[in-house]
Simulated scan of single mutants.
Amino acid sequence: MSHLYDIAHARAGDKGDTSIIVVAPYDIADFDRVGDALASDAVAAHLGVPVANVTVRPSPTLGAFTVVIRERLDGGVTRSRSVDPHGKSLSGHILEIPTQAPRVES
């Protein structure tokens, strides 16, 4: 089984109680494969949040996806008692989502 970390990298940021993660494939040929793995319901299930709190926006021109996860940071940096109030570890966690095998062109 392969995972997003095999074909993409990520960077996390935060705004209040919202985590914002950019996920970009190493190779643009994997753009659709990364997008398939980042379905909102798959991200929500993987992170244990309601699907209504997850928005995934593709940016084909940039070759990346923006994943917005609302109400994930326990109140935000100044309120959270979390070990990771900025949610930086979420970028690594999201890369553990499994991916489908690459499509074979005939």
Score class of each variant (00 low, 15 high):
residue 28 I to G: 00
residue 102 P to D: 09
residue 57 R to Y: 10
residue 38 L to T: 11
residue 71 E to W: 08
residue 32 D to T: 12
residue 3 H to I: 14
residue 19 S to Y: 02
residue 70 R to K: 15
residue 25 P to Q: 06
residue 26 Y to T: 08
residue 70 R to T: 12
residue 84 D to C: 06
residue 93 H to Y: 11
residue 84 D to P: 05
residue 77 V to Q: 07
residue 86 H to G: 05
residue 93 H to S: 05
residue 92 G to N: 13
residue 33 R to T: 10
residue 32 D to G: 01
residue 103 R to Y: 04
residue 49 V to E: 07
residue 66 T to L: 09
residue 83 V to Q: 09
residue 51 V to E: 11
residue 35 G to W: 12
residue 26 Y to G: 00
residue 51 V to L: 01
residue 89 S to T: 15
residue 28 I to R: 10
residue 33 R to M: 14
residue 9 H to D: 09
residue 95 L to H: 05
residue 38 L to P: 11
residue 7 I to K: 02
residue 58 P to E: 15
residue 67 V to D: 07
residue 94 I to V: 15
residue 28 I to F: 04
residue 34 V to A: 07
residue 72 R to M: 09
residue 105 E to C: 00
residue 55 T to D: 12
residue 63 G to I: 01
residue 55 T to P: 00
residue 3 H to S: 15
residue 6 D to E: 12
residue 13 G to A: 09
residue 33 R to P: 05
residue 46 H to V: 10
residue 55 T to V: 13
residue 83 V to N: 07
residue 36 D to V: 15
residue 24 A to M: 08
residue 56 V to T: 14
residue 24 A to H: 02
residue 44 A to R: 11
residue 76 G to C: 03
residue 79 R to Q: 13
residue 30 D to W: 01
residue 56 V to R: 07
residue 77 V to D: 00
residue 105 E to G: 01
residue 105 E to K: 04
residue 3 H to D: 12
residue 2 S to I: 11
residue 69 I to S: 07
residue 19 S to I: 05
residue 102 P to Y: 03
residue 50 P to T: 06
residue 3 H to K: 15
residue 99 T to F: 04
residue 50 P to L: 03
residue 83 V to Y: 10
residue 81 R to T: 14
residue 42 A to M: 12
residue 50 P to N: 08
residue 7 I to D: 03
residue 50 P to I: 03
residue 22 V to R: 14
residue 70 R to F: 01
residue 73 L to A: 08
residue 75 G to S: 04
residue 7 I to Y: 02
residue 29 A to T: 08
residue 56 V to D: 08
residue 12 A to R: 03
residue 91 S to Q: 13
residue 37 A to C: 08
residue 74 D to L: 00
residue 38 L to G: 08
residue 61 T to R: 05
residue 74 D to R: 02
residue 65 F to N: 04
residue 35 G to F: 13
residue 59 S to L: 14
residue 52 A to N: 06
residue 71 E to V: 00
residue 6 D to S: 10
residue 29 A to H: 03
residue 36 D to G: 13
residue 59 S to G: 03
residue 77 V to T: 11
residue 96 E to K: 13
residue 80 S to D: 07
residue 30 D to K: 02
residue 71 E to N: 14
residue 10 A to R: 06
residue 82 S to K: 06
residue 82 S to N: 11
residue 104 V to Q: 06
residue 15 K to C: 03
residue 15 K to T: 05
residue 92 G to V: 07
residue 105 E to N: 06
residue 55 T to I: 04
residue 45 A to D: 15
residue 69 I to K: 03
residue 6 D to N: 14
residue 41 D to C: 02
residue 54 V to F: 05
residue 67 V to L: 09
residue 52 A to M: 01
residue 11 R to L: 04
residue 88 K to S: 14
residue 78 T to I: 14
residue 96 E to S: 12
residue 41 D to Y: 13
residue 42 A to R: 15
residue 100 Q to V: 04
residue 13 G to M: 01
residue 86 H to I: 03
residue 3 H to C: 05
residue 86 H to T: 10
residue 15 K to N: 01
residue 38 L to Q: 12
residue 2 S to M: 13
residue 20 I to M: 10
residue 26 Y to S: 02
residue 69 I to R: 08
residue 58 P to D: 13
residue 54 V to H: 07
residue 77 V to F: 15
residue 100 Q to E: 12
residue 36 D to Q: 13
residue 80 S to L: 01
residue 57 R to D: 14
residue 71 E to T: 04
residue 67 V to Q: 09
residue 97 I to Q: 04
residue 35 G to V: 13
residue 68 V to W: 02
residue 14 D to W: 00
residue 25 P to K: 06
residue 61 T to W: 00
residue 68 V to G: 06
residue 22 V to Y: 12
residue 72 R to A: 13
